[in-house]
Design a protein around this nucleic acid. Sequence first.
RNA 1: GCCGUCUUAGCUCAGCGGUAGAGCACUCGCUUCACACGCGAUAGGUCAGAAGUUCAAAUCUUCUAGACGGCACCA
Length: 824
Amino acid sequence: MELDKAYDPKAAEENHYKRWEENGYFSPEINQLSDAPKYSIVIPPPNVTGSLHMGHALQHTIMDVLTRWKRMQGYRTLWLPGTDHAGISVQRKVVEQLKKEEHKKPTDIGREEFVRRAWAWKEEYGNTITEQMRREGVSVDWSRHRFTMDESLSLAVRSVFCTLYEEGSIYRGLRIVNWCPKDKTVLSDLEVKDEVKKDGKLTYLKYPITGTDRTITVATTRPETMLGDTAVAVNPSDDRYKDLIGKTVSLPLTDREIPIVADEYVDAEFGTGAVKVTPAHDPNDYQIGQRHNLHQLLIMNDDGSMNSAAGSEFEGLDRFVAREKVVERFEELGLLEKVDDYEVTLPICERCKTIVEPILSEQWFVKMEEMRDMALALMRNEGVPHFSPRIPHEKVYTAWLENLKDWTISRQLWWGHQIPAWYDIEGNVYVARTEAEAYEKAGTRSLIQDQDVLDTWFSSGLWAFSTFGWIDDTTSTDDLERYLPTDVLVTGRDIIFLWVSRMIMLTRKFTGKKAFEDVVITGTVLGKDGKPMSKSRNNGVDPIEMFDKFGVDATRVYLASIATGADIKWNDLLIETYRNFANKIWNATRFCLMNSEGAVVDHASLMERGGLSLPDRWIISRLNQTAIEVNRALDKYEFHIAVSLLYHFFWDEFCDWYIELKKDEINAGDVEATTRILTILEIALRMLHPFMPYLTEELWLKLPGVSAELHHAAYKQADGTIMLTSFPPGDPSAFDEQADREMTSIIDVIKKVRNIRAEMNISPSIKFDLHIAADEAFQNVFRSNEAQILKLARADRVVIAKELEVPKASAKAVTSHASVAVPL
RNA sequence: GCCGUCUUAGCUCAGCGGUAGAGCACUCGCUUCACACGCGAUAGGUCAGAAGUUCAAAUCUUCUAGACGGCACCA
């Protein structure tokens, strides 16, 4: 059989994925052994709004390597795919579409219609990423694909909500929350990012003390909130203000008198030592307000504009316009003390970058103490999850848990899991799994469901078990029984708190099981400029483009070659390395097949050690050592080590030495030699398969004598494919230290001669006599491999003796087992 | 403010207690019958700086400088 001169990745990529998928190779049911151990992974569900980026490609590569490796080891392997409904993202897409195409707002079409359109949007665009994933070659079981708003996953969400509510862990309360005026929804602390603003201002406002001509000065970065002040606080031990405690100030721009209270929170050393208190717009002020029973005056609307409580002069103004106006008015009144430059850190919405407003709002929360303690106990007692890399993630994860606060789970959106709570006319709340149940509890005919939906992370927090069919604690499914806990979670460090920790806690709480044993935290693939890839920086690298340019397999090996957890700057040159590697594998196979008539892959051919030559014994020894080390590296999630081992074994040892040494025999059509090299190649391809699925399948199918006979015992009934062969475990009894040593001595000699040739400028076409001196044992080694030495050293004749007997004008060199000389 | 990471060959990165490694780029030589996406051979580093522990440190400790990440606070 004759192969093309260069590997064409596209053809292989188009040939195999569909067949694998249609033949059910990705399904755990392909495994026919009833006692096979299981291996399971759930995918971090990408957003339906997303398209494949390099971070996905990296994580998917790692998960696929693990899945294919374990499958080849005979595990009943399930990698479960799915997508996330991505509340805010989809909502925003639909709002934009509505605005663009119909010039309408969501309220114009109503909730029901809006949700219908969101589903339509999801149907139309939500599969982009799953189609791209097929190109990656991921061996996920598409028949088990889940979406966070699937019926059964939605039922799971409801029952978890109800259970937590019934036991008092979920409550509804008025709290200071992070409010995004653009998205018009509350956000959890984790969805708020910080942005340092160097040119901020600190404004000092003077408040007149009632009944005196004195004033008290307070400082603020948000002057407009003074319209909502309901007190001024000072430290009780601050002598400057002791006599003012209990007095009131006349709040400028309003007709209100507000008290001066004493509170330990106030730091007498900072600023003026007096703090304006706005309980409805600041978390600390809220706390002070609670302690002093202060009125909570809300002065903003949900879009960040001032409301009527801010006074007629300000009503309707945007918060930033109001800010300027307040300062102006204070200046007019002679109550503006000064404005200092001040570096402020602003909270911004993670998604839309709008400045988040702390605001008093009634929301749903989850108390986390119990689940937090479960997770901490899991770590303390069992070291679960085991993070790779362990440093720093284990410590960061633990520290975060220890300081965990209540989780804000309601969102003012229409797209998502609507909160299963209903209200009657008096405002009584009925939390129920179904509307009917709510009516039954309420005993009335008129209920309104809570308008909010749940944080997207609430449903993805159940992902580790809701995907296996869990609906409530009476559920029993085979998948749940079999695949939970999952074996490993592979994800990025940005969602360790948002997602990983919540899955651990919720899974433990609701199933009593662990979500997963191990967590692999991948690094960040940075742009060429060393910054995280982003649209605004325009430094992104599209995985699909890389697939087109270098092939999927080359891209996968490159991604796998990055040390676990390390960040890496993108560099096309490195992918090229692995594109070249793919081509090397292709051509090595091409060579093995050129004169392969009569030879077949035959594992028995490697067993009769008696009749094997030194290069045979050596390459078999190296093959087995490599296999053992690759398995060991994968066991430890050291993918880059596995890649390096395979790269050097295949290129340096198999191609540069073994093939070169066996070339004459193969070219001469020596069936035994060709059988052996084909068999060694076949084993090497198996080891490469988890990393380079397309290339290895393409080549494996071309090898003579391959069939389902070579499959792992669990897959004998399936049609022939490399993905169902056994992953080479490596056989320590095949280690041959003597062969390693002897072969090394021959390689050393040849390298020295080549060195001499280059140093002495001897043209490759010129042949010469080569003198080798060594002890008797090595003389025998060199004698019995004389033909190979002659060929690779490009010598005419080899003289082997105890001592070198050469003219003075000779180039000499010494290896650890021999001396060599070339007469000039 | 607290916690943490990184700084190794021109570039991108491995190594993390025992005589400095890879790929690419560079230099030299090869139209060698699998592969020029190739073959062969060189060259290139006081492992950011300083001090310490050790028989032995790129690798452990401390400090300094630079790059960066997370958390908290932010009147």
